[in-house]
Design a protein around this nucleic acid. Structure first.
Lengths: 196, 196
DNA sequence: CATTAAATCTTTATGCTGGAAAGATTTGGC
DNA sequence: GCCAAATCTTTCCAGCATAAAGATTTAATG
């Protein structure tokens, strides 16, 4: 039996291939042609499912934000005291960044995303809501937060995000080496004590 | 008088052209050919001054880190009380990111840099030293910092860097809009109060 | 000053990329 | 069974990075 003309579920196949490629070869290897090759189709086939490379990466990133949100929610439980919730959330944020560095880069530092996509916006917004709703985790995210709370939430987010970014970029390791500290991972863990 | 065969100082000309292109067209427009065109030479001319595009961008980024360091040092004065120094430094960090977003992106989120370059490493290290030396600004950066201080310094750095990153990416504005707050810049400013 | 070596820039070529257009094949509605 | 739509391939164009070879200018040496 030769390869059938129709793939079956090329859309999912392309997203799968893209993620595998992202994990194995890194973000720079994410070309439309390479993804199509990995999925076993011609380089023009993706056109019918995604407008262009940006469209494909935007879809993949949307999935990434959904997984990110799930990873955060999995670590936060309503019965936890607020301080523990905060620590758990920060730890989950860093854990996701470390477990899926390629996806994390795509989500936060890619210039090839279409941020006008409603799906992407919604997924990203839902993930970030987990962070800002930490003081009221009982689904009270209906109304807008007052300015003070927003500033606090953004400060927390900035801190954890900064840690994740500098860590993934190897700055923490470089700094630790420079000051003769052997355990960058432990340092990152200790940094969470400074979470606002 | 026709265009002379030799440029005179093509190395500086290319770096100039690259920075102009970065400021006007954004980081995505930084192709070797576009830079060469802007400098008025053939696309193979840069080869003699930089090994490849990575080499050129690495040199430009090195300059960026030197300017970054100068911008930080310009705002910090020994006679300031430590708390003021900290605030001033954070403010200068954000100010640089806002004033030179393209350069900032190149410095912190580009995959096309050669981090084995001694020049780049030295420039980056010197810039970061301004941040970690804040508690002892009198040039006492000779020896390594103890672990506690390193964690604290990295925490501060992570926070400011996270703020800058989320700000430049438009997340602060998006979050502010979602919660009906009109002034993202003011929010960013207020976030600095949470600096560890 | 003349000659030669080195430095600098251009031309040419290869192979990758994204994207558009047109053709081939299969599926599904009628 | 037939036609339209969906899906995939082939072909084509332009831009990119990089390498190699050639042209031109500068500099060094005698």
């Amino acid at each position: 039996m030769a390869k059938p003309y129709h793939h079956g579920d090329l859309r999912a196949g392309l997203l799968d291939a893209a993620e595998t490629l992202l994990d194995t070869e890194g973000i720079a290897a994410l070309s439309l042609r390479a993804i199509a090759r990995a999925a076993g189709v011609s380089h023009a086939a993706p056109k019918h499912h995604f407008r262009d490379l940006t469209g494909l990466l935007t879809a993949l990133t949307t999935i990434g934000f959904e997984r990110f949100r799930a990873a955060l929610l999995a670590e936060v439980h309503p019965e936890m005291p607020p301080a523990s919730r905060l620590r758990a959330l920060g730890s989950a944020y860093l854990g996701f960044a470390r477990a899926h560095p390629g996806l994390f880069q795509l989500m936060f530092r890619s210039e090839r995303l279409d941020w006008t996509s409603p799906d992407l916006r919604q997924a990203a917004s839902a993930a970030f809501a987990v962070l800002s709703d930490i003081d009221a985790p009982s689904g009270a995210s209906a109304g807008p937060i007052p300015r003070e709370g927003l500033v606090r939430a953004l400060a927390r987010w900035s801190f954890v995000h900064g840690v994740a970014t500098l860590w993934l970029d190897g700055r923490v390791a470089a700094m630790a080496a420079k000051h003769q500290q052997p355990d960058p991972g432990g340092i990152v863990h200790d940094m969470l004590a400074w979470l606002p």
